[in-house]
Design a protein around this nucleic acid. Sequence first.
DNA 1: TTCAACCCTGCCCCTGGGGCAAGGTCAACC
DNA 2: GGTTGACCTTGCCCCAGGGGCAGGGTTGAA
Lengths: 241, 241
Amino acid sequence: MITIGRLARYAGVTIKTIRVYHAKGLLPEPERDSSGYRRYTARHAIDLIKIRSLADAGVPLARIRDLRAAPAADLRRALHEIDGDLTARIGELRRVRRRLRRLAAGDDLLPTGVGAHLDRLREYGFSDHWVAFQADLWILVFATHPETATELLQDQAQALTEPALRRIFLDYDGAHDLAPGDPRVDELADRMVRAIRDRYDPDHLPGQDPSSDIPTLIQATVNASSPAWRRLDALVRRRLG
Amino acid sequence: MITIGRLARYAGVTIKTIRVYHAKGLLPEPERDSSGYRRYTARHAIDLIKIRSLADAGVPLARIRDLRAAPAADLRRALHEIDGDLTARIGELRRVRRRLRRLAAGDDLLPTGVGAHLDRLREYGFSDHWVAFQADLWILVFATHPETATELLQDQAQALTEPALRRIFLDYDGAHDLAPGDPRVDELADRMVRAIRDRYDPDHLPGQDPSSDIPTLIQATVNASSPAWRRLDALVRRRLG
DNA sequence: TTCAACCCTGCCCCTGGGGCAAGGTCAACC
DNA sequence: GGTTGACCTTGCCCCAGGGGCAGGGTTGAA
């Protein structure tokens, strides 16, 4: 006839845990003594220890409660199932860790390939501001359109190997702080339109996919950061549309 | 300017999750349109995707919130720490699974060695009732006194190889349904006292450890199941002093 | 005009307990 | 016979990471 504290120490749990098990119907409430204290028997200790050995194995308490009324065959079947669950959880954690390590190796949360692309941008002389912007942009594209993102990235990387196109992008970067009325903005818009017409099929201009808001969303963010860029977008859009 | 549902689909989370992140301060609340709907920008999408890639790696939300204000070096350090956490969790799950498999293989929640002992009891002709009783008893002993349980079990197993002692235990088993006043109870008590005096140092009788209630608890449970057993315990206890 | 699909806030629910408050009880010590 | 400290009681709120429902408002397309 031991008290709850002793039982807790024997079973290696806290008093709270035992009371929770009573409340959840896993362990029957014992008799009370004259002062209302719970008084436990060896049966309770044995039951509690069995419950803990299942709980330690990761079996949810509700499941343990049901299992305690079930025959041994059910118990075996349930244990097998729980084993499968554990294996799945281990696999999932391993995947997560692999992802995390790639993340840590890249110093940031970048999808594969984007890091190298950003390094090239720095080499080409793009501003830090532009590089940071591109990083975020590619995160967004990879998350929302994983199936075409790599293709887009490769297209973009290839475009930058051509000096004339690279010049356009560098000038776009540089136009950030121009006044919107600056003639260089108009001149850049001209070059952009010609380059786009040159490079892409007029019926399949990139960023025109009507099933996605992402290009629009990105362009809105781009535009919001500079009046000159906003004007540039308007000009290009008018001449292409 | 997308709605919460679209943002949720892009990021692969539920609407509820986004609202929870607002409430927890992980993601800033966006502007509202004229009807009170939240309207999100690309920035929110990027932030949310970054948050999710950390959350998917098992980083607690509170930690993510703090990390978002921290410099890159802190982020790297935190990622390394999280990697360690993950490794520890994987190891723990593996241990749990190993325990579970031993559990499943033994058909029950028995500590190592007890299963074989119980099989021998059956061979010796003990009743099913007795064997089940012993199973629970050893679970309790192993859980509460892991350091001496194996020793006790071996002592018990060795005792049972001696025919005279085995006879005593078998008679104890058989006495369960005797009337408490049956002379065979007195005769058995006599044999038990002689055997105990014979086998054990009188200053170190087993089950007399004053620092543990477990023997008392077990004896109380044993006694509760049969009047004859209760009388047997009283007789032995009186004669042993 | 109607209908489905959205959106809003506020509320309670889950697991597996932790922790605290406010009070009652027990055993030992002085 | 007090006091002290350890123990017990119930009841309540808290954590992560959301799920789900109620009871309403809004939007867009047929």
